[in-house]
């Protein structure tokens, strides 16, 4: 493909989509979270045995205490919006290479019973963007078909 500038010499450009298939391991910790999502429609967070805070996403080690976060507790499925982003900019999803449709709303919701600052991050179904605000009560809606990925959560819905 060429890239001719007015009057200037032709400058060669090569446009391509580079793609490499991946096998992403869940490991035991994220695996447990995703299995609970898929099989039981439960949001399970792991918990640091030392400082007691929850981790979402669940991670092997508590960064504050450098110990394995071995305990598990169910959180939500309701909670309150801690932060949100109304996205107008359309970007590619690097897991599929496809461009996302806009606008959409991302939200970080602190689920009920969460200890520490560990909101769950997902899409918010908000037909009226002007209603979105911090502190708004929301509920996790699970997808009908679930395959053990974050897509098993369809979105948050606003509790009217």
């Amino acid at each position: 493909m060429s890239n001719k500038k007015e009057g200037g010499p032709e400058l060669i450009v090569s446009r391509q989509i580079l793609s490499i298939a991946q096998r992403f391991s869940t490991g035991p910790v994220m695996g447990r979270f995703l299995r609970e999502l898929r099989d039981n429609k439960r949001i399970m967070a792991n918990k640091c045995p030392k400082c007691g805070r929850h981790q979402l996403p669940p991670r092997e080690v508590c960064a504050l205490c450098s110990v394995e976060a071995t305990e598990w507790e169910e959180l939500g499925p309701e909670g309150a919006i801690r932060d949100y982003d109304i996205v107008y900019y359309s970007s590619p999803d690097p897991l599929t290479g496809e461009t996302r449709e806009t606008p959409y709303v991302l939200c970080w919701a602190q689920l009920d019973r969460t200890q520490g600052d560990a909101p769950l991050w997902h899409l918010l179904n908000a037909p009226d963007l002007s209603k979105v605000r911090r502190g708004l009560r929301v509920r996790v809606v699970f997808s009908e078909e679930r395959d053990g990925t974050m897509g098993d959560i369809k979105y948050f819905e606003i509790i009217e």
């Binding site: 994220m30 996403p57 900019y89 970007s91 999803d93 897991l95 991302l106 991050w121 997902h122």
Partner: peptide, 9 residues
């Protein structure tokens, strides 16, 4: 890839 990659902008 298993958490926010389909969400982040």
């Amino acid at each position: 890839p298993l958490w926010g990659r389909s969400l982040q902008t």
